[in-house]
Amino acid sequence: MSPTARRSGLLVRWAPAGAAAAVLVLALCGGWLTDVDPAQTLTRPWSPPSGEHPLGADALGRDVLARTLHGGRELALVAGAAALIATSCGAVIGLWAGWSRSRVGSAVAAGADLLLALPLLLVALVIAVAVPVPWPVIVATVLGGAPLTLRVVADATRNARHTGYVEAALSRGEPTLTVLLREVVPAHRGLLSADLGIRAVLALQLATALAVLGHGPAPPSSDWAVMLRENLTGMPLNPAAVLAPAFALTVLALVIAFAARQAQR
């Protein structure tokens, strides 16, 4: 292969990953790019885009660009944390349920399946009434996501039990925990990271849905989902106030889904 071809091959391979990383960094640290205070009323409500305010103003005359740049951080952190907790819970219980051939293991798996029968958004709304932000998103993601992770991981673990590498580790006397962590988990790392990505998208959707239904972070938070809710009525006057956070949410969800897909390879 010629050097040029190899360079372009590397570019093809890494460019999407680089773009995805850039979007994530922008969502987390976008607030640092602007000096404008996202909580300050600066102009007339629903002002259309102008030189001073490139994306116009929102319902309270605050700068939409500054609010959009600030608005991803909390959302992304909450979604990431929720996904991490959900996947970890599911993976740990799944490893145990798949490995142990006891009845308790099958009972736990069956119980997890029952959880899946609950309507998730309804559960999330009930939790939202009971506990403060951001816990509803995290708890609902764990309830709705961990059982799925558990199922997949338990199945993969059951199959891994009879592979040569697990049997080799067992026959040299490795403790169960070491076998699980050194052999089974690495063998399924693609599966686990893909699962993490799917749970993050779920958390993002839940956070958005709750915020739009009025259970999001309190004002003056510039959370993208909160922006959607606040600015929907001003759509005819300044469409950018709704389109900017909607676009940002979509791109973030797509990037996470894409990263999950790559991790599965």
Binding site: T163, G164, E167, A168, R172, E183, P186, A187
Partner: peptide, 15 residues
Amino acid sequence: ALVAQDPAASLNPAR
């Protein structure tokens, strides 16, 4: 020590 039959799964794919 045991050397198992199935060469496809004898080594951990991730290691």
